[in-house]
Amino acid sequence: MRFDKTEISLAAVAIACVLFGFVSPGWLIFLMTIAFAKALVVQGVVMQMRSGLVSFGQGLFYCIGGYTVGMGGQFFGIHDAIAALALGVLVAIVVAMILGLLLTRYRDIFFAMLSLAFSMILFGILVKSQSLGSTDGFNVHNWTVFGWAPEVGAGSQQTVFTMTVLSGLVIAVLIHRYTKAGIGVICEAIRENEVRVEYLGLSPRWVLYGNYVAAASVSALGGGLTALATGHVDPEMAYWTTSGEFIFIALLGGLGHVAAPFIAAIVFSVVRTYAIEFVPHTWQMILGFTLLGVIVFLPKGLWSLVSREKSGERA
């Protein structure tokens, strides 16, 4: 296998992050774990945005990933974190394969609303499930990695962080290759003009279907990692405001590069944390202005800060 420069630099940054994890304080590791895990969900949103579809219900798969990991440990005796994560991804793929059959017939706002509806239906089911703690959810603990149980506290936090960074790296490399490969390019072509893609003899619907399922699996992984890191799952993961947050982060980063969601997720968490600390009564307003500012001044997201130099070269 040959790695291109982007992949090598991704790996370098990932290793740097893991090493950084050993020296940084606990709150920062946690913040970065959650940010990276959410960034994986955002990758799912971005994958669909590249093909012109905006999912207002990506929380569905985030929640499926989280609940599968939680229920695996709580009810089915699956304590191995890797197995639980894999199961979460698998469940998400199965659900996505079914829902995708219907959803890929829709575009624009109809796709957005229908994906939202499915996510809200899951929310409703979970709220009704008193054995799963209804809206209170339940705790996720006592997990192991290949039979090894990290010590509670710093040890398990470190483990989740490393797992998240490594999954992030693997997914980022895969997505990077995917966007460069034929199918990824076709997705962008579908966004630009679906009819012309049909004229080329391709079926946009099945391309979108594949893309939808792939995006679901990535998002479920993010949900599972969040559950492990937080130690708790609740139905709010499927609520529409959670999905709104993912779109927020996706736009913050922009579609320009596979690394953008990771950076955007960190920036989002940091802005929110400090907004909550310094203006506890009006932190949402700060988020709103940040979003507007990015849209007005950086229409291609934060990533355009990094790639500006390059577009200058071209011009």
Binding site: D4, K5, V13, A16, M32
Partner: peptide, 24 residues
């Protein structure tokens, strides 16, 4: 063009870490 990719990466990675370290 992949040439500037690596430097770009380095810039963003270092920036993110510096930001976090600054916060810490």
């Amino acid at each position: 063009n992949n040439k500037s990719n690596f430097s770009k990466y380095l810039v963003s990675g270092v920036a993110a870490l510096a930001l976090s370290a600054g916060l810490a």
